[in-house]
Design a protein around this nucleic acid. Sequence first.
DNA 1: TATGAATGAGCATTCATTCAT
DNA 2: AATGAATGAATGCTCATTCAT
Lengths: 184, 184, 184, 184
Amino acid sequence: MLATAAEVFASRGYASTTVREVADAAGMLGGSLYYHFDSKESMVDEVLSVFLTDMWAAYDAVIASGLDARDTFRALIAESFRTIDRHRPAVVIYQNESKHLATNPRFAYLTDSQRRFRAMWLSVLDRGVMEGVFRADLDTGLIYRFTRDTVWLAASWYRSDGRLSADEIARQYMAMVLDGIVTT
Amino acid sequence: MLATAAEVFASRGYASTTVREVADAAGMLGGSLYYHFDSKESMVDEVLSVFLTDMWAAYDAVIASGLDARDTFRALIAESFRTIDRHRPAVVIYQNESKHLATNPRFAYLTDSQRRFRAMWLSVLDRGVMEGVFRADLDTGLIYRFTRDTVWLAASWYRSDGRLSADEIARQYMAMVLDGIVTT
Amino acid sequence: MLATAAEVFASRGYASTTVREVADAAGMLGGSLYYHFDSKESMVDEVLSVFLTDMWAAYDAVIASGLDARDTFRALIAESFRTIDRHRPAVVIYQNESKHLATNPRFAYLTDSQRRFRAMWLSVLDRGVMEGVFRADLDTGLIYRFTRDTVWLAASWYRSDGRLSADEIARQYMAMVLDGIVTT
Amino acid sequence: MLATAAEVFASRGYASTTVREVADAAGMLGGSLYYHFDSKESMVDEVLSVFLTDMWAAYDAVIASGLDARDTFRALIAESFRTIDRHRPAVVIYQNESKHLATNPRFAYLTDSQRRFRAMWLSVLDRGVMEGVFRADLDTGLIYRFTRDTVWLAASWYRSDGRLSADEIARQYMAMVLDGIVTT
DNA sequence: TATGAATGAGCATTCATTCAT
DNA sequence: AATGAATGAATGCTCATTCAT
């Protein structure tokens, strides 16, 4: 049922989705949802929490594996697309509503996550530059933004049953980006 | 006043923005807006139309100038960031609300524009592959999506008074992407 | 369980009390109450009926004992405070919800009881005036109201485990009403 | 319009009154009320605040006039009935909803007022006992409660266009309480 | 041009009630 | 006897929109 809510929020937008629409999609009446959830807000909350927890588990495993900058970068990209594969609707919601939701104390963890996310990517990129594996003439702050935007926005068009698998998309993205930022 | 509306819609989201908030920002009362606009919908409509018209004028000029694939690509990227500079709020709105608005016949032009947009970029990329200037082992459909997403989402964080100018951001983006997709 | 319902209704108000709260207090789940009661309404109904039946039994015994006006008055006051002692929550509910409930045909007996109540007290007071034991310059209709209100509203603050017993409160009240608070 | 709301709340009970009913009584539609009030809560809030402010102005004037205990008592009773005459619906609401509303921080002033009210009456009664004008064998705490309940509950049945004026009711009440109903 | 009072449809949420288990 | 999932009507409230002034 959480998955149902996530899908509806993702496709219609959180604010524009009515509780009745979620209930319809879940095969019940409006009021019945409230037996399972406290509020509309707590639905997104749970959707986003579950997604972020899972995403960080994957990221933390990568960080813990002690790869060099370039392979860490590749692994993070790959994990990102795999996370999109597992949590597509949640990622779409995160992408679209995060900024607005974060103004609510209840969703402070969104800002925390974002901060940690930025620190993680910048650290990999800066390490790569220092190790001489990434070009030094690029603004890593910009590269971070470009990468972040492209990867997560992919959730908007990715279909798990589409022509390209998450791993293949990741491979192509890395091919595009890596051969650009790697010194030749 | 249109600019005011665009800014409010961009920062709060179209659906979440109340007409009163737009009126406040414009220094008048809720009902007064209706002397200037038919409806909330016609406000976004005008915001988006103006933006798209201007964007296509710029793109058409590039296409008309008869450059080769690689320089066309560079010019389109540059024009995109310049368009963001001129129409940042409109681009944000376009990015966030387009999909939802497009279900309304009134906004059919959004879908048309998107289709034309896709055709234009694919044509440049495919021509580049054919001319041997872009790598042949990449999926141009994917490259198109990656590029589109990254460029337009930049409107979410770009500040015209920020550290980096639109042209500098464009330059960095091209450096990243081009050296990746260009044959070596 | 009826006592539980009465207490909850008395403390939170009938309209503001949810069936779930009554169930909670009775140590069961919301739906389970309906094995014991037809409806929320039938709970108050039974609470009030039991209370009124008991109260009238006490009053009728007083009336039947053939005392003079002054002693009948004293006895009725005493019985009223004893009834409060036995049915405090029910009296509170009666006091607060009676007027509203009485619009419902099912609770017509509330209006009947009130009418009979008024007749009984007026008869005692008027008899006392006629017998010369109560002052003739008083409006017995008013005295009735003052007495009724004070006695029954005492249910709002009376505690059976408090400093003063029901009989002591009755004694003080009679002292005040019968002889006044001014020293003579 | 505030008066309309007060009347509806008083007759149907705050919790049982719907915003639509208030609007009906005010000759408008449900949503229209919100142009004038923030919420249902702020309606009662204003009704009660206005009433309490006015009541305390009257009481304070009595206290300031430096009468002896007995005349202060009489004046306070008289002012109470006059306040009921001016603010009948508000007094009814205060009487019925006070306890429940007071759990809300917004209505903390209800508890404050009640505390001050109690202190004022007890001070008058105790002073009377000390001055020897009121009987010493009475529990002033009880007398306070009896008086408070009777006076304010009168708002439930008092009609400004009824047979008896507020001052006449006050006179009768004082006669009863001060000197008793028994002939001497 | 602008105001402000009102509209009315729509929303999230509550809650008495039902019912299969 | 009791559970727990569901119902659906009703509620407080929001907001785009209208319109007389």
